[in-house]
Computed example of a mutant assay.
Amino acid sequence: MKILDSLFPGVTSDIFLQSYWTQQVCTTVPGAGSRQPLISIEEIDAVIAGAQLNPDDIKLAKDGSIIPGSRYTEKGVINVCRLLDYYRNGATIILKRLDLHMYKLAEFCRRLEQELHGVREVYINAYLTPPAAQGFPAHYDDHDVFILQEHGEKDWKIYSCMADFPTADIPYNLAPSYIDTPPTEVRLGAGMALYMPRGFVHEARTGDSHSIHLTVTIVPVTYSEILTEMATLLAGNISVARQTLPADYFSSTSTPAMPDAMLTALSGSLLKEALVQKDITGFKKPLVGGLFNHIFHDRQITAGSILATRPYLRYQLKTSEDTLMLDFYGKTIRLPAVVKEDLYFVLKSSTFRVNDMNGMLDEESCLILVSSLVEEGFLEVVQY
């Protein structure tokens, strides 16, 4: 089942993407059913008490103020007892980028990235809030979020949208008029979810219970980023784009015009190339379970072995006359152009055997290619 089909009972992924995504708030209807928690209290306890977290991985907030890390760390190590003292006294504990510490949360993020397609990244922070407490005042975010209530309850107030598609580059500006209209109030219980597009002003507070919720952050790719990429490509590929403007360009009474060659390029293949060049693969926690088992036991891949591209893998393939560049997990694998047909076969196949590959490579070369891709973490062996 798709993640988007499981978050809001009665709202399919198609309906969500058509009617809610980037447009309006969506929440679980009380009594409509709920999902299973992604994380247990025991797992949260193990992360805080047992994992070797860096002080930068944790933040404390109380009534709108951030508590300095120096108050709950010693010599660069988190003092869990002090951390819990602050929690008992009303502070919210934020576990940042929990997906980097828990494989199943990293997998959740990669799955959601695939379902949402053109987003740069999905990551997860966890919020632990004691009863009758509020970590942050009303604010808006520059990214869309899914709020997944895991344990306990939390009351949310959501105000009218105050900023149209804010980004980190636009100065934060919360106008006091956001309180002029009554907020929508939502109580999230365990297993319920809430979606908020960026720009919606919101605040949350606990009642009588402790609360754990996950904030699933969606980092977007915007039209302005693609235009910036297109401008870079234009300057590199179209000589007229590098020409000096006419002397009367700014003083002319007529509307300044762009050369036809530039307009043709902008409306043609340049957009497609900009989408290719805009790297949304980036570095994310590699989902490469079983890789060390393969390497340590030196298990041999044969012509009859069954292989597959690792699930939820985001990659880009760039081609030149004599080289293929495969980008994934923040690295680039360069391959000779002669492997092109066989590599395309691999990329298009859900599962395959080496002896099914029918490009220009012979069997021995195919084995070398797929063995390399397995060791790099791109492919996994389904059956030796």
Rank of each mutant, 00 (worst) to 15 (best):
E74P: 00
I306R: 11
Y87A: 10
A51P: 02
G33C: 00
S349F: 10
H101R: 14
A235C: 13
I333Q: 14
P9G: 04
S40Q: 04
D142F: 11
T281G: 04
A247Q: 08
R111C: 06
P131D: 01
H139L: 03
P176Q: 11
P37W: 11
V370L: 05
H117R: 15
F200L: 02
F200S: 04
D99S: 15
T206C: 06
F136E: 13
K154P: 05
F165H: 05
I48Q: 02
A138Y: 10
L7C: 03
G10H: 08
L379F: 04
L7S: 05
Y127F: 15
Y178D: 07
A303G: 09
S19Y: 05
L369W: 13
T323E: 12
I67Q: 14
T12C: 00
R111G: 02
S269N: 13
K59I: 01
F328A: 03
T206F: 07
V288F: 01
G50C: 04
L100I: 00
G377S: 01
S19P: 00
F352E: 08
T255G: 01
S254Y: 01
M230N: 00
I218A: 03
G236A: 15
A247E: 11
I94K: 08
K272Y: 08
D327M: 05
D327W: 03
I238M: 04
I333S: 13
P68F: 10
T22Q: 15
I226L: 14
A132V: 02
C109E: 04
Q300I: 14
R353Y: 02
I3C: 03
S371W: 03
L361D: 12
Y127D: 13
